[in-house]
Design a protein around this nucleic acid. Structure first.
Lengths: 222, 222
DNA sequence: CCAAAAGTGTTGGCGTTACACCCATGC
DNA sequence: GCATGGGTGTAACGCCAACACTTTTGG
């Protein structure tokens, strides 16, 4: 077994950490950005990321990079998006970026130098990070309808109204309450949980996702 | 701008080149495989691939790797699949594989040491190439229904029966002729072309895809 | 004339949409 | 008792699946 010729090339991972926060009547998508402290693009916003280490797997590198910008324990879903490999995407040299999508129920606890920004009016981002962000949103929108990815944007238990608000926030349009409930129940996306959520109104039944891991649906929602 | 620390790590590209060939009544999916001449996995079948060069973009590397196993000019569609990065996926050292999917209208002209193999009963493959092949098939099946990817598996012009055979071959089930025609016409997937295809039967109207580049459909086919 | 594939409509059932009011609680 | 969200049914419509025969050519 001959050793491989190693080229002068680096692999980075970058993460689009997405969540939702109240805005107006509903929820708006936000992503985690970090202000760059060094050149190139010093002072610009960028996605959390870092260079892959020699014996580290991709997901490990993503978690390491994310942990510099927020606490990891809130991450409920992590998947690979795509690899961006244009030779001059990084002015310092050849760096491929294996981009990832992370989902969290709530945007909280951004570290110093990091912040949650609205996707809708994101500032210019360093490198090709705008393209990566766009890919993340597109992926999430697509998967929402035919999978249970939404579980990454909610806690263990939630009311159907909360679930609907997540769908509306990501899809950017309103859905009919009765039809939405019929659909998510009929496709078996969620099951009733035990408790109720209380507030200044009638208590709301809690639900949980039927499957813990990502599952594709036969039928579409929304 | 400080130079990056370059780690001892290589990036490969691997390609699943897919096509269809007659089998029984219909068409069966086949992929291009190459017999390995060196260790590791000497003598096993593997996917065409190669190490990314320093100033080469990913698609360029894919084309270079493919051109060793077949003529490039038949490739009608090329897209990135996913990046496989387990630290020990290659026994020689750390090599990430950015895998790709290529589509061709017909499986022809495999170079020496390469061959078109049926996906359905593929032999054991080197490295994690079986997983890459599975990802390619899954991607193609999914996209067939809600996009015009099928154009990668057909020539410029084709009859509706040929188009239907492509769908049936990839999906692995038969479709109703009348419903299929209604659907592909109503969603505007194809337009009538000028000629007809002749044979020992009534001449068949030729069609072409409406869009040259990959387009997502509002509605599903099949 | 025969073989082969092209081409063409209708119907029944099901799923999707559109739509408005009563209910249970907290304060 | 009032405000707030929770929770529920039905009717019209459109889409999809199932189904068989006639047409046109080559040989």
């Amino acid at each position: 077994m001959s050793p491989l010729p190693h080229s002068g090339l680096a692999v980075a991972v970058d993460v689009v950490a997405l969540s939702l926060r109240p805005a107006g009547e509903g929820l708006e998508p936000v992503f985690l950005a970090r202000r760059r402290e060094r050149e190139p693009f010093r002072g610009d916003w960028s996605l959390p990321g870092g260079i892959l280490r020699e014996r580290e797997d991709l997901e490990g590198a993503v978690r390491r990079a994310l942990s510099n910008a927020m606490p990891l324990e809130h991450v409920r879903h992590l998947e690979q998006l795509a690899t961006f490999g244009e030779p001059d995407r990084d002015p310092r040299g050849r760096v491929l970026s294996v981009s990832h999508l992370a989902l969290l129920p709530e945007p909280r606890a951004a570290a110093d130098g990091a912040a949650w920004l609205a996707v809708a009016d994101a500032p210019a981002l360093a490198f090709d990070h705008a393209a990566i962000l766009a890919a993340a949103i597109e992926r999430l929108r697509g998967k929402l309808s035919y999978s249970n990815v939404a579980h990454g944007l909610l806690g263990e238990q939630f009311t159907l109204s909360e679930l609907q608000a997540v769908y509306e926030g990501v899809l950017g349009r309103e859905l009919d309450k009765r039809n939405f409930r019929k659909k998510v129940l009929s496709v078996g996306l969620v099951d009733e949980a035990d408790g109720v959520r209380r507030g200044p109104h009638r208590p709301a039944q809690l639900y949980r996702f039927r499957h813990d891991r990502l599952v594709l649906l036969d039928d579409a929602i929304g």
